[in-house]
């Protein structure tokens, strides 16, 4: 029995010894940032907009940064789970977040989340997608006026889809309610595909989302939430022209946890800016129909804070802030 116990112990030591000997050469050596792989957290599932964008810039960013980049998808709870994980990470520059507006500028107002916009230091804005309100070609709501008149005549009957409570399409509905003094019926769906399906199937009358989906589903654009008319849609009036000076756009930006050293942020910023000017990346983005729109850390911070405050006001007025 004792001999048996000794041989088990020896076997265990032998195994551990072999494992360590085999793995030792892979131990990292000490150097400057970055000296090992950088993890980019994407708080959404694979194949979604943010994920594709990240994967499109990954190879060139990796080259410009001088380190391997690993993309980690942490989906769940409208992007808050992955974003919380990124906020909690060590602020050493080896964990980076690429994400859209929702989790950092809208979700914190709706419920208790263990992070906020200021849990992050911005690195740079990557892309921006203006929201466009749309309906189907057969719908009776072809202009903003149709919607406003219809809503004034029958409050709470025009069905406006959104991709969930607190998402940007929902914010667009609230903004329209406030600006025109009307009551629209909000139908929250789980995700934008379901919302588009409802629009195409006739269950929803109107949906606001990024402009790329208009040609995809053959939709009719009613108005765009931007300051100037979109180059691809010169006939679509802007909300500003129609008298409502609101700009709503979904954007994707890069963040690091608050407290990351300045030098590290500078390295990342330089690499990001270089990547977004690279021709190969621009070609990929054209394929994905994404508009690159870089903003440096300071400008991005101001921009994001502007969104944060605006969303809070809208949600508060609608009685949705806890």
């Amino acid at each position: 029995m004792r001999k048996f116990k000794v041989s088990i112990g020896m076997a265990a030591c032998l195994c551990l010894g072999i494992a360590m000997a085999v793995s030792a050469p892979l131990a990292a050596a000490k150097a400057d940032y970055p000296d090992k792989h950088v993890t980019v957290i994407v708080a959404w599932g694979a194949g979604g907009g943010t994920d594709l964008l990240t994967r499109a810039i990954q190879p060139i960013l990796s080259k410009n940064l001088g380190a391997d980049i690993v993309v980690k998808n942490l989906p769940g709870a409208a992007g808050t789970i992955g974003t919380a994980q990124a906020a909690r990470a060590k602020p050493d520059g080896y964990t980076v977040l690429i994400g859209p507006a929702g989790p950092v500028t809208t979700q914190p107002h709706l419920r208790d989340i263990p992070y906020d916009l200021d849990s992050f230091d911005p690195v740079g804005r990557i892309a921006i997608n203006v929201m466009v309100t749309m309906s189907t070609k057969e719908s009776k709501y072809k202009t903003l006026n149709d919607i406003i008149e219809g809503a004034k005549a029958n409050p709470n009957t025009i069905r406006c889809a959104s991709s969930g409570a607190g998402t940007l399409p929902h914010i667009a509905i609230l903004a329209l309610n406030k600006a025109a003094g009307i009551q629209l019926k909000h139908l929250p769906y789980k995700g934008s595909s379901n919302a588009v399906k409802a629009l195409l199937g006739g269950e929803a009358d109107v949906f606001s989302d990024q402009a790329q989906i208009i040609p995809r589903y053959d939709l009719h654009a009613i108005a765009s939430w931007s300051a100037e008319r979109l180059p691809d849609y010169p006939n679509v009036p802007t909300m500003k022209e129609l008298g409502y000076d609101f700009q709503i756009a979904n954007w994707n930006g890069m963040f690091v946890p608050r407290g990351t050293p300045e030098t590290v942020i500078d390295t990342l910023t330089t690499a990001l800016e270089k990547t977004l000017a690279d021709k190969a990346v621009l070609d990929e983005m054209a394929k994905l129909k994404v508009d690159i729109s870089y903003l440096d850390p300071q400008a991005f911070k101001t921009f994001a804070e502007g969104d944060y405050v605006r969303n809070r006001e809208l949600l508060k007025e609608a009685g949705l802030v806890k």
Partner: peptide
């Protein structure tokens, strides 16, 4: 629905649609 409408039929085809988008093919009614 994924190919004819551009609306994913299940979670897996949602990811597959992005493979099309990466190739520059826009899923949708056209």
């Amino acid at each position: 629905p994924t190919l004819a409408l551009g609306i994913p039929g299940d979670a897996v085809t949602a990811v597959m649609m992005s493979a099309l988008i990466i190739q520059g093919i826009q899923p949708g009614v056209r």
